[in-house]
Each structure stands twice: as C-alpha cells, then as structure tokens.
Nucleic acid binder design. Sequence first.
DNA 1: TTAGACTTCAAACGAGCGTTTTAAATGCGC
DNA 2: GCGCATTTAAAACGCTCGTTTGAAGTCTAA
Lengths: 212, 212
Amino acid sequence: MPESSTFSTKQRILEAAEDLFAKHGFAGASLRQVTAAANVNLAAVNYHFGSKDRLIEEVFRRRLDELNARRLAALKRTLGKPGHSLEDVLAAFIKPALELSLDRSGGPAFVRVLARAYAEHNERLRKFLSDNYGHVLKEFAAAFAALLPKLEKEELYWRLDIVAGALTYAMADFGVIKRRSGQSERDFRDRAAQHLIRFAAAGLREPQGTRD
Amino acid sequence: MPESSTFSTKQRILEAAEDLFAKHGFAGASLRQVTAAANVNLAAVNYHFGSKDRLIEEVFRRRLDELNARRLAALKRTLGKPGHSLEDVLAAFIKPALELSLDRSGGPAFVRVLARAYAEHNERLRKFLSDNYGHVLKEFAAAFAALLPKLEKEELYWRLDIVAGALTYAMADFGVIKRRSGQSERDFRDRAAQHLIRFAAAGLREPQGTRD
DNA sequence: TTAGACTTCAAACGAGCGTTTTAAATGCGC
DNA sequence: GCGCATTTAAAACGCTCGTTTGAAGTCTAA
C-alpha cells in the first residue's frame, strides 16, 4: 500500500471536508460537494475512508492527534515548574488550540468544526471523541483540581464545563472577528490568549459560595 | 382565517420540529421525521409555514419573542434600581433563559437549538436573529458598558462574546447534566444561575491588563 | 342546507443523497 | 515491457429529501 501516491487525494478530501463541514455541518455538507471541492471523483471518499462517518472521524483525528499531544506536552512542562499557576495550566490548554488555528491552513475551519461537534449531541461522535481524547481532559481536570483544593468536585466540574464551552465557542469565532488594522495575526492571537486565560482563570478562582 | 382550528396542527409541528432540530440539527432533521412525530400530514408544513426554512424561523420566533421580552423587562427593572450590580444585569440575561428551560415543555430542547444556531454560521439564520433580536443584545451591552467604564470597548465586546458563548453552551447542556438525587428542579436551576452569574461576573470584572 | 373558505390527505415530482459496481487508468517491482 | 496491485473513473443502485398537486374532507355563516 504505497502511501505516497494516495496522500494527495486523501489530503485534498480531508481539507475540503473540513472546510465544508465547518460551513454547512456534517449532515449539511454532501460528499458530492466535498469531492467537487477537492477535485476528486465521488467514489474516492468511500474508497479511501469507507464511509462518510469514517471521513468525519478522520477529519477530527488528523487535527486532534497533534493538538492534544501539544496540550499534554505543555501541561507536562507546566506541572514540572514548581510554582505553576492556574493561568499556566489554562495556557497549556488554550495556546495549542490558538496556534493550531494560526499555523496550519484550515485551522480556523477546524475549530469551527469542533464547536459544531460540541453543539451536536451525536452519540457516535461523542463516543469517538471520548474514547480517543478523554484522557487528555482527565489530566487537565486533575491539574485544575490540585490548584483549586477548596472547590468541591461538583463545583469544579461545573466550572470546567463552562470554561470548555466558552473557549470552544470563542475560538470558533476567531476566524470571523475582524482585527484592528495593522495588528498582526500573531499579536491578535496573543491578545486573544490573554483574554481567554484571564477570563477563565477569574471564573475558576472565584471563591465558592455556599448559598444566597 | 380561523386560528383556533389551525392552532393544534401548527403547534404540534412546532413542538416536534424543536425537539428534532435539537437532536439532529436543522439539516439532519427531515420534514418527514417532523410530521411523523407530530402525527400530521407531510404537506402540512408547507401549507402552514411555506417552507422548511420558514418553519425553522418560526421555531425561534415562538420562544425568543417571550424570552427576549422577559429579558428586557428584567433589565429595565434592574436598571431602575439605583445601586444595581453587574450580577443583577447578568441575572436579567440568564434567569429568563433558565426559566424558559424549566417552565415550558420543550424548553430544554429549545436551548439546545439555540446552541446549534450559535455554532452554525448560517447567513440566513444569523440575519434573521440579528434583525429580530439584535436590539436586545445592544441594550444589554450598553448596560454592561455603563457598569464597566474602565474597560475599553474592544475588550468589553471580547468578553461579552465569550460570556454569551459560555452561557449558551452551558444552558444547552442543562438538560443532560444529572442533578443530585433529592435536589428539586427549582433548586438545581437556582444553583445553576448562581454558578453562571458568578462565573460570568468574575470574567467581566477582572481588571484589564495592558500587556504581558 | 347549501356555498365557500379552510384544512387534511395520498400521491407524485424532480433532485440530491450515500454507497456500490464494474471497468479503465496508473504506478511499480521484476 | 509485463504483470499485478493500487487508484481513479463513470454510471447506476435504492432511497430520502423538500416541495407541489389536486382531490377529499371539514367547518362556518347565510
């Protein structure tokens, strides 16, 4: 199975799929649209991926494998530092995602795909993501828990859930937000990271109230 | 045009549509699924609403008219109080949405529909929502701006965007979160509102940083 | 009770869907 | 250059989609 020769077709399908899934959703983007945009024969999807569902999974795997590896590496580096802060852990989670949407072509599209997956409560997709990347979230949750010992577990999970949702939505909108003229992409992303980290840290650190 | 006789069919279509749009998305839920769930003839959708797109809009209008009226009323009440706080304004935004998902049947489904609309960047839908309900967001933005005079406009909009995303996402998941046994629905919602308000207030109030 | 507006219904429309099939083209070690 | 596995190609499969049609049914007011 000579990978080099299949590479181009598979790659083009994945890129077109990512873009169209971001624009029209998983159900809304058809394989005919995808293959037309990729300049590839319609049957190529089922030849290379087996089905539309598996193509969707591959769209996620391609980006998430690297994204989560970077997140874990950054987390490990952070946990190694003796006096690491909440902001450091948040940065380990957020910055790789921001870099993804900056570095690679198609990154901005992918974070929108990710937001869609968040909004969908599709059973198959949730299981796939949980099976493949659930351990990453668990490691981050443990790191947060260690830094916020006074928060009850239930309260912490509440807040992490809100933070994850907020970050996902915010990053999905980055491709749309128009930045100040003259501001470089890098500057913009750095400011964005600062905003997100500060915002999330404030929400997590706020002392737990007992009752009103 | 005798409204009373059409009422039942239209109502049943709207309720089935809301539920199925929440579950499978706008493209993913077909009119055949909707009409079957509503126990109504397939052609009834096009007879009563004209098209699938207009049905989608009507699903939004039915809930948002009341939701936004309540939000504006709560905001007006809050702004009338002399010493009102950031938390009060946030409560005016959040509590009506939480009550919607508590009071009415189908409410939890609708907030998930709302989250989907957020994730979609559908031009037609965005225009419809902005045309019909954009003024509500503007009034809230003004109220926030008055309470956070030290924040630059750009910074404020950043944060409001994140808050709106976080809230939308969090409320969409309320139907899924399992609450402690013995905890009443009302208690759960009140606690949820406290969490969201405290979280959002902390993120908004955090002093603006100049640069790292 | 009959006229007429409104609503429901079964059936069909053309179009597009994901997938499969079968054959032609391509790349590559021998 | 031949033989073979891999990839591309065109066409068709059965199915579901949103929408339209025209007739049947239902209700109300005169």
